[in-house]
C-alpha cells in the first residue's frame, strides 16, 4: 500500500494511491462495477474520534452527491455524501462495534459501504485522481489548520 503524505505539525495526512476521490470527503476503490467507499484520512482527523456510524442499508439506491448516512464524532455530526451512483450491496457491520476503525484505518478496515455502480461514466467526471485530490487536501489542511487536532 502506498500513500501520498502531507505533514502538518505532528500529523501526517494520507491520500491512498490508486483511489478516486469525491470533493465531499469520500474515496472510491473500484473493482469492476463494484465501488468500495470510505472517508478520507483528512476528514477523520479533522472531525475527531468516531462514536457512531449510521449508514443506509443494502438494496437502497443512491446517487452521486446524495446522502448515504452520517457519522457522529466527539466533536461534530456530519453527513456522508455518496461519491457514486448505484445500489448499496454491502455495509461494513464491523463499524457498529468498532467505529474507531474509521479513525484508525480509514482506507482499510474502516471502509463504509460497497455500491454496485450504474453511472460510472458520468460519475467519473466528478471524481478526482489521487494526485488531484492530494493537492486539494493540502489546501484544506492549511485552511483548517487552526481546527486540526483541537477541541475547545
Amino acid at each position: 500500500m502506498s500513500y501520498l503524505e502531507y505533514k502538518f505539525d505532528k500529523f501526517v495526512f494520507k491520500a491512498k494511491k490508486g483511489l478516486l476521490y469525491h470533493e465531499d470527503g469520500c474515496w472510491v476503490e473500484l473493482d469492476g462495477e463494484i465501488a468500495k467507499v470510505g472517508i478520507t484520512d483528512f476528514l477523520q482527523t479533522l472531525n475527531g474520534d468516531v462514536a457512531f456510524v449510521s449508514l443506509y442499508a443494502p438494496n437502497v439506491s443512491v446517487k452521486q452527491g446524495e446522502c448515504i448516512g452520517d457519522i457522529e464524532t466527539m466533536k461534530v455530526s456530519f453527513e456522508l455524501t455518496s461519491p457514486v451512483t448505484g445500489k448499496i450491496i454491502e455495509k461494513n457491520n464491523d463499524l457498529d462495534e468498532s467505529p474507531e476503525l474509521v479513525n484508525n484505518e480509514p482506507y482499510g478496515a474502516g471502509w463504509l459501504l460497497k455500491i454496485k455502480t450504474t453511472n460510472m461514466e458520468e460519475d467519473l467526471k466528478n471524481l478526482k485522481s489521487d494526485e488531484q485530490y492530494f493537492e486539494v487536501m493540502k489546501k484544506k489542511v492549511d485552511e483548517e489548520s487552526e481546527k486540526i487536532g483541537k477541541e475547545q
Partner: peptide, 13 residues
C-alpha cells in the same frame, strides 16, 4: 458515550 449518546461533552476545559 456509545451507551449514553445524549451525554456529549462540550469541550476539554
Amino acid at each position: 458515550f456509545k451507551d449514553n449518546p445524549g451525554k456529549k461533552p462540550q469541550g476539554i476545559v
